[in-house]
Computed example of a mutant assay.
Amino acid sequence: MSSVQVLTPRDVPLGGLRAMRVRRTLPQRERSLVGAWCFADHYGPDPVAETGGMVVPPHPHTGLQTVSWLFAGEVEHRDSAGNHAMVRPGELNLMTGGHGVSHSEVSTPGTEVLHGVQLWVALPDGARDRPARFDHYAPPPLTGPGWSAHVFLGSLLGHTSPVETATPLLGAEIVLDPGAVLELAVDATYEHGVLVDTGSVVVAGQPVKPSEMGYVEPGSPDLRIEALEASRVVLLGGPPFGEQIVMWWNFVGRDHDEIARYREEWQAQITRDGEVVGDSQDVADGRFGIVVGDHLPPIPAPVLPTARLKPRG
């Protein structure tokens, strides 16, 4: 049986002063990556009338892909590559930051409950300087005895997502009835993370509770998930990334100096006479571009730590 490590989340604010709270399982001290998956936030179900919903003004990314997957609600996405899309339950929205991109995420007025995951994928060195890109995919529902699933990246349960990735990846939402047992045929070279949204499950013999992630090391062609009650999980996977990364704020790079340069470029784009501009349409041209159609003021980068950032992976 494969060894399973249980990763517990920490509660963090997202999006500045009017921040919504999210539960973050990646990265953490014990583990930085699962395959190329380098970041996992889990939020909701949040009543928007009480929490204010998601209001994340324009902010930058480099060297990564963002993967948005909702269980409930709707989020409006705008980015500096000119993409404008609605993120809806059961539909993958994947934004490739690559050389540099900025975007905003705001829950729509009709959203009453917001619930989902926000995931990042680290791009390998050979792909991280590519131009920004946006992919949308609505995977078909898959069903079997006591379970249903949507495979949004990679291959599982006889379905293969057409969305191209820079490294092999697996991403799927799986819903299980109480007592259901799902024996999955998986790639033995992959490591896997099972993030529990609701309910509780046993992953390869290890109990995993809500908001926890069960990490399964490579080596087995089978992955067993048993539902102790009605449960929903997000399954992530991929071969070990094989590269060290530096991840700070919204940037993925390879060393401290590179991250510092990204921060300096972003600050130069969004400030005038030392002050952050009041409208995203007023930012200067540069690496991260302009988020067209969004009039929220951009998010300034925090101050870099005094110690040099160290690669992890």
Score class of each variant (00 low, 15 high):
Arg10Gly: 03
Pro168Met: 05
Glu164Cys: 02
Thr51Val: 07
Thr96Cys: 09
Asp46His: 14
Ala49Pro: 00
Pro221Cys: 11
Thr96Leu: 10
Pro124Cys: 04
Ser200Leu: 06
Val175Arg: 12
Val233Arg: 07
His115Met: 03
Met213Gln: 04
His84Ile: 08
Val276Lys: 01
Pro210Met: 14
Ser102Tyr: 03
Ser211Ala: 15
Gly253Asp: 06
Ala72Ile: 00
Gly82Ile: 09
Gly179Thr: 07
Asp177Cys: 07
Phe251Ile: 10
Asp79Gly: 03
Val181Arg: 15
Gln118Phe: 13
Gly274Lys: 09
Leu184Val: 08
Arg78Ala: 06
Pro47Met: 09
His59Lys: 13
Phe241Thr: 07
Val113Asp: 03
Val181Lys: 11
Leu156Pro: 00
Pro305Lys: 13
Gly242Pro: 13
Met20His: 02
Leu296Asp: 09
Asp129Tyr: 04
His115Ser: 11
Asp279Cys: 07
Leu119Thr: 05
Gly219Thr: 03
Asn250Arg: 05
Glu105Thr: 10
Ala185Thr: 15
Asn250Trp: 08
Ala230Cys: 05
Gly154Arg: 01
Ala19Asn: 12
Gly313Arg: 03
Ile290Tyr: 00
Ala127Tyr: 07
Ser2Met: 08
Ser220Phe: 04
Asp41Ile: 06
Asp285Thr: 08
Val252Lys: 00
Asp129Trp: 02
Glu50Cys: 01
Leu123Pro: 07
Pro141Gly: 02
Val181Gly: 09
Ser107Asn: 14
Ile299Ser: 13
Gly144Arg: 06
Leu114Met: 09
Ser220Gly: 05
Ile299Gly: 01
Gly90Arg: 13
His103Thr: 09
Gly98Thr: 10
Gly171Ala: 05
Gly278Arg: 01
Gly253His: 03
Gly16Ala: 05
Pro305Tyr: 13
Gly110His: 11
Gln206Val: 09
Val303Asn: 08
Trp147Gln: 07
Trp266Met: 04
Val101Trp: 00
Val201Ser: 09
Phe39Gln: 11
Leu142Pro: 02
Val12Cys: 00
Pro60Arg: 04
Gly253Asn: 05
Asp129Asn: 12
Asp125Val: 06
Ile225His: 02
Asp79Thr: 08
Glu275Gly: 00
Val276Cys: 02
Phe39Lys: 04
Thr306Cys: 06
Gly52Pro: 10
Ala301Arg: 01
Pro218Thr: 07
Thr25Tyr: 06
Val121Ile: 15
Leu156Asp: 09
Gln269Arg: 05
Asp46Tyr: 08
Ala49Arg: 10
Gly199Asn: 11
Ile290Ala: 01
Gly52Cys: 10
Pro141Ser: 12
Gly90Glu: 13
Gly90Ser: 08
Leu169Gln: 14
Leu296Gly: 04
Ala227Gly: 03
Pro305Glu: 09
Tyr215Lys: 00
Arg261Leu: 14
Tyr43Asp: 00
Ala138Gln: 08
Trp120Gly: 10
Ile245Tyr: 08
Gly171Thr: 01
Pro57Arg: 07
Glu191Asp: 12
Ala260Gln: 00
Phe251Lys: 00
Thr189Arg: 15
Gly110Lys: 03
Arg263Thr: 12
Val12Lys: 13
